[in-house]
Write a protein that binds this DNA or RNA. Sequence first.
DNA 1: TAATATACTATAGATTCAGTAGGAATTAAA
DNA 2: TTTAATTCCTACTGAATCTATAGTATATTA
Lengths: 140, 140
Amino acid sequence: MNVTSKGRYALRVMVDLAQHPEDGFVSLKTVAERQGISMKYLEMIVGHLKKAELVESTRGKEGGYRLCRDAASYSVGEILHCIEDNLAPVSCIRDGSITCDHAELCLTIPMWKELDEITNKYLESITLADLLSGDKWKGT
Amino acid sequence: MNVTSKGRYALRVMVDLAQHPEDGFVSLKTVAERQGISMKYLEMIVGHLKKAELVESTRGKEGGYRLCRDAASYSVGEILHCIEDNLAPVSCIRDGSITCDHAELCLTIPMWKELDEITNKYLESITLADLLSGDKWKGT
DNA sequence: TAATATACTATAGATTCAGTAGGAATTAAA
DNA sequence: TTTAATTCCTACTGAATCTATAGTATATTA
């Protein structure tokens, strides 16, 4: 897996929105300033989050974005999956399936597959609410 | 972590050498043909393995490469680390250290750090001998 | 109607990836 | 001693991906 800036920013946008649940629709300009990220770049990223129905939006003045659900209901994996092309550790695997021709002969594939499963399991186990509280990593 | 073709090929070379322990020094030409990988590309990869003292070589006719140690003593992590620039899931982390400016403020860093530790632990736990036998993944 | 947003498409520079090219140095066998 | 086979070393290159930026159209509210 290689999580690019798109994925990292997507996560930070979601965290930012989760941190301000009382503000209703929050404009990208606000998020971009708070997070120190280019607003134009965020537009593209949030477009994917919207398409996957992780956020909802209104246009025009006083418009912006907000979460659709409770923070605890979003997993990190869910967020990353809608913005990253491939989360597997190697290009031989995509969305849990093996995309390699000589996979039967390759002695390394089962190891990559298990690694992919371990990382996905971890990312599914962490929620947006976990990131907000930080409790899982207290004292580390 | 993004394991590139360099890392995947390095692993396959090591597996190939481990599969032919009785052949003494094996030429890259032989490995390249067996594995279906460009020999010129392998030269560069094996250069790193040699520098890290994972393999030893002799030059000239009848020359080639062979493992320095028993297959069970090499971890997958060890092999990948000497060929891949960064094995962390995000560029904010490198070799277990955080390289990001606003890490104290960033709510996602502890999660990335833990993910990095989980994947490294897994890769350290798998040996070349495990890949050869395939026993760890029997019946999956 | 003016101001403020989102929504959409195209483009571009920088970096990394994946591999190639060419030749120098070394060694064993003929 | 010559020849063939091999490692070793450096430089280069085309393609892909990453990381945005630019410009414009559309929608909404005050």
